[in-house]
Structure formats: structure tokens, C-alpha cells
Design a protein around this nucleic acid. Structure first.
Lengths: 204, 204
DNA sequence: TTGACATATGACAAGCTGTCATAGTATAAT
DNA sequence: ATTATACTATGACAGCTTGTCATATGTCAA
């Protein structure tokens, strides 16, 4: 979380630092990214940086959260898709790829390659528990329960997070070898198909 | 890949270094782990270390591969499970947790928390392509195709990797809050259930 | 014993991070 | 207009990191 000092800064100054940081996180992966390089990019002093952010991770998460919120809002798409979250993710997959291609592609590439399994949880969570529950409730309200076998809220929410994870993995695959969109999309669709109708022949 | 120099070392010396490294990777996560600390633990000189391994990652991967191979061998369990890889993973999940609890638990905790989405691919791959294909072929030979809707090798292999991913995620969840085994196991089983029989009510 | 080769060493340069005493700037109050 | 107060900016610094390299030591064969 950035300090109040940072938040008080003029929009210009804030954007300047965030741009400088994004540039560095585009150049190399998270581990290799250097605060030295960021303050050089931004043209600010070492002391100032530590006035604004606790450390590199603090800054990284802040930028990450921005995009996270951006994509999270698009969950509104659920309404257009009649509460079918599988179809929703299917479209989001393409939207996200398109967005990443047009905005800081290199940044997103490093982001997805650095993406950890633990992130899935971060993506599902708003910082505060009340917020989380609110989001969860909203989601469960929008979801068209009649579509699915599993009716309890817990089951549906877990199914939702499963599809989120599959989507994330597909995005990561796409950014590993960014040439083969169609191949990755097909594999992604296959996985969704399994989720929809199951893998087993028999149906006991 | 360690140098020939390292491989030539006596078993004792090799184990000494690997133990020292595992100790450091147990103490802190990968990023924070320090080569300085490792050579201190091992009682060897800086120069020697770089004689053996290119850098920290090189060493980390080497240790990782050891356990990877260990668990990979247990895929033989498929035979006992009549070629049902879902049931196979179900049991492997418990075996792996048990193993980790009894061996370097802290190391595995950090390993799983650091686990990236890109790892899924590493886990599916043997270094050489011929080896990979051999493994893939073997797998497809063992798998009981009659169980599944999807019959082509590509589809089955992708389904396999999907279940692998779900298992990995469950393991990561377990190591995030290691108290709640039953809760994580239940969620894992739910996910496998979805994979088996599908999520949709209708079946078109 | 000598050479040739493999292995081990630690001082070193170059880089990094986080801190802190100091300096500067803005806003409010007298 | 001047002082007080609070906020903001600075860069030198200590203490850590890594990877390299000239040098030293060990080992085996001729």
C-alpha cells in the first residue's frame, strides 16, 4: 500500500513514477527489476521512493491491483451472458489478450510468466472481508443457478474459481509462446468443455 | 544443470551442499534465499559454488528436479487404479502431503508457495523431447480410454494436465494454511467431481 | 620429479537495498 | 511580511548481495 504522501502527489507525479516502474517491470521479470532503475527512469531520488512505497513488492502489487480491478469490473459481462460464467470467461479471455496486446504487452508478459498459483486467491479477494463477501454475494446473485448441477453457494463459488484458474493458465500459456493463439485457444476451449459436460463416459 | 565438476564430487560432498541449500530454501522463499548463506551452511568457498552451479536458480532447479522425478515415478499408480488418472491423482495428493510432512516440510511449503503457473509445463516435461514423447506414449497406453468421453490422444493428454493442475493448486492451498486439511481436501474432491461429471445440468 | 590437469580459494568490483540527517518547500497564523 | 509548522525531497552511507578471476592447492600419470 503506498503511503499517504504518495497519494497526495499530483496526478502527473504519480503517473510519472508508475510509468517508470511499469517500464522496468516490462524490461525484466520481477526478481530482476531494480528500484535503482525505476528511480532513474522516474528522475526522483532514492529517499523519495521509500517515502512513497515500502519496497519493490509494495509498488508491484499496487500496479497489479490497478489492472486486477480493471478486469474484475468486466465480470459485469455475466449479465449479458445470462449468468453463465463459463461463457463469460470464454469472452474475457479474448478481451484480456486484446487489451494486453494494446497496452504494455511486455509488462503483461512478465506479469503472467511470474504469476504464481497463490495469485488465484488474490484475484478472488478484495482486501477487506466485508468487501469479499459483498462481491461473493453479488456474484452468486448474478449467476444463473438453473444452469448448473451444483446449487449450494459454496459449490458454485468453487466452480467459479476453478474456471478462473483454467482461464489464468490459458493466459499464461499464451504469453509463454505468444505466436500460437489458435492452439492455446483450442486447448482452453477443450478444458472448458470438460468442465461443462464432464470427462467420464458413464454418468453415475 | 550442475557442472561435471559437481557430479564428479564424492557423494558426501554433494549431499553436503544439497543439504545446505535445502536448509536455506527452507528458511526463506526463493527470492530471499542467499548463496552466501548456502556456502556458509555448507562450509565451502564462494568460488567452489560457482564451479558447481551457474547461479541460485541452477541449484534450485536441480533440487526441484529430484523431487519432481520422485513423484513422477509414482504415476505407476495408474496401473493399480485401472487407468483412471483422476483417482490416481486423488491418492497422489495424499501421498505427496504425507511425504512433504515427513521430509523438509518447510522446504516444500516454500516450494509450493513459490510455484508458478509455468511450472505445470515443467512438470509435464522431461528434458529431452524423445523422453517426453516416450512418457506421453506410456501414459496414453496406461490410461483406460473406455472411461472417458474424449478419445483422441491430444484430448486425453490435455485432460490429464488439467487434473494435474487442479491437484497442484490444491497442494498450494494446503500449504498456504496448513491447518485445514479436510477443508482443502473437500474442495479438491469437489473440483474432481466437476471434472468427472461436468457442471452443466443439461447435457447437450 | 615433473608436468598436466582438476579442484579450491577469497579478495574484489560492481551492484543492490533501506536509512537517516539534512535541506527544501508550502501552508497557516500571527 | 515573518515566523512557525508540517509536509516533501535529497543523496551519502552502511551493509548486504552476486559473479569473476588470479592464484593456490591437490592428484594422478609419465
Amino acid at each position: 500500500m503506498p503511503s499517504q504522501t504518495f497519494l497526495n502527489l499530483t496526478e502527473e507525479k504519480k503517473q510519472n513514477l508508475l510509468k517508470a516502474a511499469t517500464l522496468e517491470f516490462s524490461r525484466v521479470n520481477y526478481n530482476t527489476a531494480s528500484i535503482n532503475q525505476i528511480i532513474l527512469n522516474a528522475g526522483i531520488s532514492r529517499g523519495s521512493f521509500y517515502m512513497y512505497f515500502k519496497d519493490k513488492e509494495d509498488l508491484y502489487v499496487y500496479i497489479f491491483e490497478y489492472y486486477k480491478n480493471l478486469f474484475q469490473k468486466r465480470i459485469a459481462l455475466l449479465l449479458e451472458k445470462n449468468g453463465d460464467f463459463i461463457e463469460t470467461f470464454e469472452q474475457l479471455f479474448d478481451e484480456i489478450i486484446k487489451y494486453c496486446k494494446n497496452n504494455n504487452q511486455a509488462y503483461f508478459k512478465n506479469l503472467f510468466l511470474d504469476m504464481k498459483f497463490t495469485m488465484e486467491r488474490k484475484l478472488l479477494q478484495k482486501p477487506k472481508i466485508e468487501e469479499l463477501n459483498k462481491q461473493k454475494k453479488l456474484l452468486l446473485k448474478i449467476i444463473n443457478k438453473s444452469l448448473y448441477k451444483y446449487k449450494t453457494e459454496e459449490d458454485l463459488y468453487d466452480a467459479f474459481s476453478l474456471v478462473l484458474m483454467i482461464t489464468l493458465t490459458a493466459l499464461v500459456h499464451y504469453f509463454i509462446d505468444d505466436t500460437k493463439y489458435q492452439k492455446i485457444k483450442d486447448a482452453y476451449m477443450n478444458r472448458l468443455h470438460i468442465i461443462k459436460y464432464g470427462l467420464y463416459e458413464r454418468n453415475d
